[in-house]
Computed example of a mutant assay.
Amino acid sequence: MLNEEVHSFTAWLFNGRMALMDLNSLALFVRVVDSQGFSAAARATGLAKSSVSDRIAALEKEVGASLLRRNSRSFSVTELGRQVYAHARAILDEAEELDVLLKSRLAEPGGTIRISSSSTTYTSGLVEVLCGFATEFADVDFQLHASNGSVDLVDDGFDLAVRAHIQQLPDSSLIQKRLGFSPRWLVASAAYLERMTLPVVPADLAAHAGLVMSAMADAPELLLRNDAGSECRVRMSSRIAADDAQSLKAAAASGLGIAALPAGLCRTALAEGNLVRVLPDWHAGGAEISMLVPSRRGQVPSVRALALYIARHLPQAMRLTALRPLS
């Protein structure tokens, strides 16, 4: 039945029906998914919860299938809903890009942009994206601030921030754009895996040396999930504990154990063979990645252009997924 729904949606899409659909309905659907519920979406948009529900129901009627599963206790996205979300997200990004392109004709990006992010987010792909932007826009300069602490964009004079977060960010006057979910992958060096027995199932990790963040040193337990929705908790020994993921990456590459690292942080080491994924069908949690910018009113062209550039390129650089993995 699911394959029939997906094929039906694909035919619907390419027959041009999405092109005729109200972009506001697609935008609202994206907002509901990003907010993980109707109540949060209603608060974010200023609409009544009943209005949000009615408009999503109308969208589902137009599509001809359910996009969301919801009741009083749970909320999830159907497989078809995930496809609609991906297409809708792309359409909205293209519309925003067109808006920025037209406005950039009036004023070329230039000046200095102050950016805040954690050091792990920078090294996981953000610096690569910023370098690409700087190459394209030679008149833009950057001031980069790496901190895991709280930063007030307005009071501290920042133009843009990229945040990794577990919980939903609080409502504020800032524009919040969700970029995707950053999964943590289990990695080790090939030399380490040759010395030890290769883990085949999650329970095998208990016999291995763990390279963990300091906060987990006393109780290094991992919650593993796969895309089928299965999950399990596994305790590992704490061979090395560190305050930053870069140190754990170096320890893993040196053959000292198994680490759970953001996918973007270890992507180059994996491509070069310095690290190998362990239990590749599983991930060890992760974090949402969001971009925060001040209100569009008064935003200089360089900041708007950079925000769009990050939204387009950072998901690929950091190996972000469109939605949280199934759980």
Results as ranks from 00 to 15, higher is better:
R304D: 08
S173C: 07
D156H: 14
A27G: 15
A44W: 01
S25H: 06
L323G: 09
D227H: 14
Y309R: 06
D139E: 06
R267K: 14
R43H: 13
E108G: 06
I310M: 02
I289Y: 08
T112V: 08
A146I: 02
A86C: 04
T78V: 05
S104T: 10
A251V: 05
P170A: 14
G298W: 08
S72M: 00
R267E: 09
T45C: 13
E194V: 03
A241G: 12
V151N: 03
A260H: 02
I240T: 15
R73Q: 12
S214C: 08
I91Y: 10
W282F: 12
A190V: 04
P262N: 06
R114Q: 08
A27M: 09
G132L: 04
V6C: 15
S172M: 10
D22C: 05
N71P: 07
P199S: 09
G273T: 12
A253G: 03
A322P: 11
G149W: 11
A134M: 10
P109Y: 02
T10C: 15
M291E: 03
A219Y: 12
L222A: 09
P202G: 08
G285H: 03
T120W: 01
G157C: 03
L179K: 00
A242L: 06
G64M: 12
N3W: 14
S327T: 14
S25C: 05
Y85D: 01
D244A: 00
H208L: 06
V293K: 05
S124C: 09
Q83R: 08
P280M: 11
V278Q: 04
R31F: 11
Q176D: 15
R89C: 00
T135D: 09
L106Y: 07
F75I: 02
A86W: 00
Y85T: 01
L314N: 00
E136C: 14
S147K: 12
M236N: 08
A242I: 00
G264R: 06
A19I: 11
D156Y: 11
L67N: 00
A215C: 08
L59K: 07
C131W: 11
L275D: 01
D152L: 07
L2M: 12
L265I: 10
R296E: 14
F29T: 02
L265H: 04
